[in-house]
Simulated scan of single mutants.
Amino acid sequence: MSSQLYIVIISALIFEFINGMRDSSNIVATMISSRAFSPRMALGMTAIAEFFGPFLFGITVAKTIGSDIVDSNLITLDVLLACLCGSIVWNMITWFFGIPSSSSHALIGGLIGATMVSVGWQSIKLEGLEKVLIALFTSPVIGFVIGFIVLRVIYFLSQNATPNINNFFRRGQFFTVIGLAFSHGTNDAQKTMGIITLSLIISGTQQEFTVPFWVILVSAGTMALGTSVGGWRLIRTLGGKFYKIRPVHSIATQLTSAVVILGGGWRMISLPPGSLPYRPAHYFRRVFTG
């Protein structure tokens, strides 16, 4: 492998470490704020579950990142390096100021931006971009609806319960946080897998998009390591600056997030062409082509 390829791989792993450090806040903030688990125990459980996520639930998201958004035949390793540098800088800015943001869409935005500067819009696969846009705009709405329903159902089922029900909600978070961490590992670690595999194809190290086992292992391990460190600035933001979180809120939030993330990973990336009555890609193609 060339020195440039090594630089891209190392940059991708740096991105993954920061991603794990930042996104751990999404998982552990509510369970720490609700005093269900100590911070260290919460981060430890999350890191272990995130590590095993890609091995248990597959690597379909990596394929979307690495082969469905840009044409690998038209871009270079310089494009990937620019994409990673931009994503790392943005992640560090949002971490420093305690601003929750999506590392996934930062990486995809960096990839699209760097690709368009390098070779133009014709290298963008609009059908793949459509999947990303669908997830970007529908995930918050879907999460809101499912979260609302889940919490109302929990309230209904526990309306005659004693205050001891809070102990059940605290202990139950062990299972919901493991499920949420699995979903994060399945989804987030695969972004780096896709970029690294794409760099291997561009450099000629391999010919087709198949994620090597060592890429899965290193990416999952790096993300788990970043998670174990913990992004405390974001944990404080998510855990205490929106509203006072009770155990019932925490368990409902974790369950909802796990359902939405796993559902997106299994369903949205596998939408076949023509499955929607309105295709946003058609609009973007018209914009780019005039």
Rank of each mutant, 00 (worst) to 15 (best):
V229I: 14
D71Q: 03
V89W: 00
V153P: 01
G185K: 12
N19T: 04
G143E: 03
H184N: 09
S104A: 13
M45E: 01
Q254N: 05
I269W: 02
A281L: 10
S104N: 07
I269H: 10
L225S: 11
G221D: 08
G179M: 12
L129K: 11
G264H: 05
I245Q: 01
V28E: 01
G265P: 11
L13E: 12
G109W: 07
H282W: 04
V70N: 06
W214Q: 10
A47P: 03
L81N: 09
K241T: 07
S250F: 06
Q206M: 12
K63F: 09
R171P: 00
T162D: 15
V150E: 10
M268F: 15
G264K: 02
G239N: 05
I216Y: 06
V229H: 09
L255R: 02
T197P: 12
T115H: 04
F169W: 15
P280V: 03
P212K: 02
R279M: 14
L271I: 15
I165D: 02
A220D: 05
F97W: 05
F284L: 15
L56W: 02
A12N: 08
V61P: 00
A181N: 09
P273G: 13
Y243N: 12
I10W: 11
W214T: 07
R171D: 04
G290Q: 13
V260W: 07
I154W: 14
N167G: 09
N91E: 03
W214F: 14
L200E: 07
M116F: 03
T192S: 14
P140Q: 09
L151A: 10
K131M: 12
L84S: 01
S72E: 04
